[in-house]
């Protein structure tokens, strides 16, 4: 029993965080928004870091890592508000293809020459797929209308929901950080607005929500990685906790920014809109709530103090 990431896992996540912080700041999001929102150079950078092959087995030219590492990095993608379809391709499609024994495309995915957006019936549209375009409130999210056939596979849904939850953690962290930094520099009534308890307490409540959503997501990643029979419950719990934390943080963050928060000029809106989008993707709040409800009240999940990890 050890509920802790290894030093290697933390170092990996940190290196991705540093890379994205250095190459994918808000100015990049603004450039993409203005000039067409995919940039081959960004994708190539992710490929060069090995991230497209993170979950591809070593025989197919990947790093052969698991869902825990993928979820950690998905959180970093959320933190950077990354729009390239890395998470859908490398952390959702690849693990799903591997689980089905479909290895044909894996080498191309790892090499970065193939991007995959798997349709699932729960998603009425997909990002970065082929089809009739739709406009998302998220200016960096390229939606297309749902293809004629979508999968009904639960494992695919669980992978998508888990990785959405992980991204929502990173988005929430980033929004909290932006709000805090703004509250330190914006002065009113002769002091930084962040010195007022009215803001402090709202921001602290966000910190509590985000902090307690994190271990739920990591626990779900481990359960799905282990193939635990309770994994769907834990994934739904994770999606709920991460969604609620991210939406709460988004609302507080815009409030802390005041009128600036209601403009397109402040960076916050990119993160907030991604959070809105992911909150409804791969099973919305009601869907995941009902799965938790059914397991907890329906009796399939043993509950009580001795069942923390049952």
């Amino acid at each position: 029993m050890n509920f802790r990431f290894s030093d290697d896992q933390l170092t990996l996540a940190e290196s991705v965080r540093d890379y994205l912080a250095g190459t994918h700041g808000p100015e990049v999001l603004r450039r993409l928004d203005a000039e067409g929102n995919r940039d081959p150079a960004i994708w190539q950078g992710l490929v060069d870091m090995g991230l497209t092959g993170l979950c591809v087995p070593e025989e197919q030219g990947g790093l052969g890592m698991g869902l825990l590492e993928a979820a950690l990095i998905a959180a970093e993608c959320g933190r950077a508000c990354l729009a390239e379809p890395l998470v859908d391709t490398a952390f959702v499609a690849v693990p799903w293809l591997v689980s089905k024994g479909e290895t044909a495309e894996l080498a191309a995915i790892a090499a970065g020459t193939r991007k995959v957006a798997l349709p699932h019936v729960l998603n009425p549209w997909v990002a970065d797929g082929e089809g009739k375009p739709l406009q998302s409130v998220d200016p960096l999210r390229n939606l297309v209308r749902f293809p004629a056939t979508g999968s009904t596979d639960d494992h695919l849904l669980n992978l998508g929901a888990l990785m959405s939850a992980a991204q929502l953690l990173g988005l929430a962290d980033a929004m909290l950080n932006q709000a805090v930094e703004y509250a330190k520099i914006r002065t009113q009534f002769g002091q930084p607005v962040g010195a007022f308890q009215g803001l402090k307490h709202q921001l602290s409540s966000c910190a509590v929500a985000v902090e307690f959503a994190k271990p739920v997501v990591w626990r779900a990643a481990q359960a799905l990685q282990d193939g635990a029979s309770s994994a769907p419950l834990h994934v739904s719990h994770a999606k709920l906790a991460a969604t609620d934390a991210a939406i709460q943080t988004a609302e507080v963050a815009i409030q802390v920014h005041g009128a600036m928060g209601y403009t397109y000029e402040v960076d916050l809106h990119f993160w907030m809109k991604r959070a809105w989008a992911l909150a409804g993707a791969w099973g919305d709040r009601s869907y995941h709530y009902k799965r938790v409800d059914a397991a907890v009240l329906g009796g399939s999940q043993p509950i009580g103090p001795e069942h923390t990890f049952a």
């Binding site: 002091q191 930084p192 010195a195 308890q197 307490h201 921001l203 910190a207």
Partner: peptide
């Protein structure tokens, strides 16, 4: 506790700080 979180974890200015 919320003041402690705001000031020590988030790094916001102390109450009354200018």
């Amino acid at each position: 506790q919320r003041n402690i979180i705001a000031e020590r974890l988030l790094g916001l200015p102390r109450v009354g700080a200018g």
